[in-house]
Each structure stands twice: as C-alpha cells, then as structure tokens.
Write a protein that binds this DNA or RNA. Structure first.
Lengths: 254, 254
DNA sequence: CTTGACTTTGCACGTTTATGCACGTTTTAT
DNA sequence: ATAAAACGTGCATAAACGTGCAAAGTCAAG
C-alpha cells in the first residue's frame, strides 16, 4: 500500500469512527506502530487531525467551535450516529438536530438512502450536500453560534410548516424525572417545537448525558419513544428509562 | 506497445484500482520501472493523476478533500475575499452569497467587525459561527447541493423579509452585454431576488469569469454598482465595465 | 536507400524516502 | 508508587527516485 493512500485511509477512518487508535490500525494494516505514529504526526503537522496519546482525533476546522466537546467521547458518538442512521427507512422524512452527534448521523447515512432530511444545522447541511441521494431541507433563522443552529421566530415559523416521521434530538441531559434538558433557553424551545411536529422522537445520548440535567427543560422524558445510547453501559443507567416504556437502543462501538 | 496506448492503459488501471504501483505495473507490462515512472511523471504534469512515492493516485476526487480544494489557487479568490470583506462597514447588514469566493469573504471579516450577515449558504454560516461579533441570519429552503445553497419557495419568502445594505454576489459569468449569468435556473432566480432587496450589489469575479457567459441570466450588468476583481488584469478586460459606470475594485494578491 | 533529427527505452549513478528496530523518555492506568 | 503502554529520536536498510547518457527505433527529406 502506498504511503499517501494509507494517509488518506487514516483520514477516512477518522471521519468514519471519529477517532484513530494507533495500535488497532497498525494491526489492521499489517504495519508497525512506528509507521502509523509517523503518519499521524505528519497529518497532525498539516492540521488534518489532532494528535492525542494512543491515536488521533478530528481537527475539523469547520467545527472548530465544537472541538473541545468533540473530544468527549468520539468513538461513542460515531457509534450512536451509525445506529441512528440505520433507523432511517427509505422514503422517510426525518429531522436532524444540531450538534456533533447529529453530524455523525449525517455522515453515516447509507450512501444509497433515498430520504428527506430536515435540519436547522448548517453543519449537517454541509455534510449532507455531499450525499448523492438524500434531499435536504434547511431551516433558517438567527444563528445561535454556540451550537451552530438556527433559532428564533423565523425558525419556529419554518418548523411549523413541516411534519416529519422521526426527530433525532441531541440533548445535554437525560434524566428520568427532570426530563430532557439543554443549556440554552431558545434552543430548548426549538427542540420542543420540532418534537411537536414529529410522529416520533429519538434522543441520542452518550453516557455522560444519562442521569444529568441542564438548566432548561425541553420536555418530559415520556415524550420520546427511543433512546440511543452507546453499548456496554451498566444496567442501572438505562433501566429507569426502560421502566417508563422507552425503547433503549444500544450502539456497538467497533 | 505504443507509448500513448500505455498511458491510456495506466489511466484505465488507475480508474479501476484507484491507484498505480510503479513496480507492479512495470512487471505486468514487461517494461522497466524507469519507463513507467516517466509516464507517471508526464501524466502528472498534465494533471491526469497525482504522483506519489511508489506510484500514483487519482488526481481529483480522492484528493479533493484531502489537501483541500481551496489550496489550488489560494491567491486570487482569497484576495478578492479580503477586498470584499474590507468594504463592509460596522453596523451594516449585508447578504453573502454561496460559493467558494463568498466563503473567502466570510473568512476574512475583521475579527472585531460588528455587523449582520444574511446568507443562504450553510458553508458561510459554519465559517461565521466562529466569528466573535458578527450576527448571522440563515435563510432556509431546499438545499441545492451543487452550490450548497438554499433555494426554492421558502428561500424566496425569507428573502422577501429582509432588506440589506450590500449584496455580495458570486456568479459564473460577467459579460458587458449579456449581463450576469450562472449555471442554474433556480439559483439565478434567488440571486435576482436578493438583488432587488439590496441597496447595492457587489459582484465578486476572478479573472476567468470576466467576459464569460453561462446559460441563465441573473440581471443586466447595470444592476450592480461594484465589481471586485483580482489585481493585475489587462485593461481591455475591465474597461467595458468602467465605461458603464461600474466601479471596478481591484484586489491586491499579497 | 540513405541521412540526420528526433523519440523512446533501459541502464548506471548518486540522492531521497519509507520503514522497522533499538533505546531512553513520557504518559497513563492501577 | 509502580508497571505497562505509548512516545520520540536516531539509525540502518531497502526501495523508489531523478538525471544523464547511450543504444535502438522512427520518420521524413533528399
């Protein structure tokens, strides 16, 4: 295998999985870890990824504002993204929320999926612009920079004009009693509005969100039908939601 | 085997396998590696493939997001972007079109500029999400993937609700008689609509756009007040526009 | 048919690049 | 506090590289 080809492969794996583990990759490619480490160092020098102990993480300048958060649980987020992407049936109309997890869902849509994705996240729109068959509807409004999503009156008005089959919601807190929560008042209102216009709502949550609560409540937990979480979590974390009749889907982290 | 025939074969193998390994190919064809290397060098000089250590890789698609498209000719477009960015006054409300040139404008806004940018391009929105002070208004609609901008009825409705001081328009053709043109009918309609809701329209055009015409006419050239072009162009290219009373701003390429 | 200009190819040479290993250091986990 | 894993650096080797050159081949004008 050519060196440049290998580097391209590394970037592809990074995009797909949200992380690189040097040892794993060296075994996969049948090369010494030194070589992989060298590649990672060079790619990092070009600013194409971020080097960390044990491997590498994305450096995506387009999502630089996220970069701090992106490091939280990249493998898990990518796995959740894949699991959510698999839930979308051909012909469906779905709403994709903003945030890093939603971007992972967009990245992992099957490349032959014919469906419509509605989103108020320009990041999601940019990713899906490269998808060959998915129809994208962009919801406008005032840009809330912290989360990179549209919010405000115009956003509400636009959301009122669509009805979707499934809403894939990102949150910062999932709590059996407090409900679904997030860190911005206006964002919470938008999520609530989308929820009302969706036949079904699916919440994407990596483990640090479970049992946590943020300042602004979006809706009670019973509003949602499915919770997608990473695999291998202790039972006591997910049991409360099962007991409330919520389907808990676990995403394997390959 | 004829040289040209061999080169055609190389390109075919490259398309089929996604890569060329010089040694393998030389054995396959019963020629010395030197000959193959020479071919690869020449094909690379023609831009038909990308030369790498050990062989070659495809020229465009695999590499497009690898080394980055905008690295190709960073000079002119970036210079035009900087020049346009300098034209924005504090407190103004401007509309930024889609396209790579508009993204350059967004990247080059002074980091302390307090202004409002309206755009139907998610790419521009993502870039401006990192800007500390600029207010961003995102116009929604159906996503036209080729240009990565929102189009359609919803886009029209949203545009009708804003009035901006300056519209920075990207085009694919600027011609003194034909006018401003672009390659998509719906995009042309959107640009025309924005034009009507702007006090002033500025067109950003790198040299290859001047004197060129695309299928769909946006507006007559007299609709615009300023044309931003790169520096160092021959007079005969810009003189026709000056004669029509259009201010031609040249962007130094430092 | 011959001549001379030009092209193509393979080889020799010295240079650059890629890779794996050894060694000592730093980071992480226990 | 300690052990294991990951790290960076220097080094040796082999592969791949470019260049200059000469032999073989091609072609058109004479």
């Amino acid at each position: 295998m050519l060196t440049q080809q290998r580097k391209a492969h590394i970037l592809e794996v990074l995009r797909r999985d949200g992380r690189i583990i040097a040892k794993t990759l060296s075994q996969e490619l049948g090369l010494s870890e030194d070589t992989i480490r060298r590649d990672l160092r060079e790619l990092a020098a070009e600013g194409l990824l971020q080097r960390v102990h044990g491997g590498a993480l994305p450096a995506s300048p387009a999502l630089a504002d996220f970069s701090g958060r992106q490091g939280v649980a990249p493998g898990a987020k990518a796995a959740i993204g894949r699991a959510a992407a698999r839930m979308i049936q051909p012909g469906q109309v779905v709403f994709l929320d903003g945030g890093t997890t939603a971007v992972q869902v967009a990245r992992n849509l099957a490349s032959d999926l014919k469906a419509t994705v509605v989103t108020h996240s320009p990041s999601v729109a940019v990713v899906l612009a490269e998808h060959p068959t998915v129809e994208v509807v962009l919801i406008g409004g005032r840009l809330f920079k912290h989360s990179v999503v549209a919010v405000g009156a115009a956003t509400f008005a636009a959301i009122a004009q669509v009805r979707v089959d499934t809403f894939f919601m990102g949150v910062t807190g999932v709590h059996a009693e407090v409900g679904l929560t997030t860190g911005d008042w206006e964002e919470a209102a938008v999520k609530r509005a989308v929820c009302r216009h969706a036949a079904e709502t699916v919440v994407l949550a990596s483990h640090e969100k479970l049992g946590a609560a943020s300042p602004y409540v979006i809706a009670p937990i019973t509003e949602i039908s499915t919770l997608v979480v990473e695999d291998g979590l202790p039972d006591y974390l997910i049991e409360p939601y099962r007991r409330l009749g919520i389907a808990v889907q676990t995403a394997r982290d390959p």
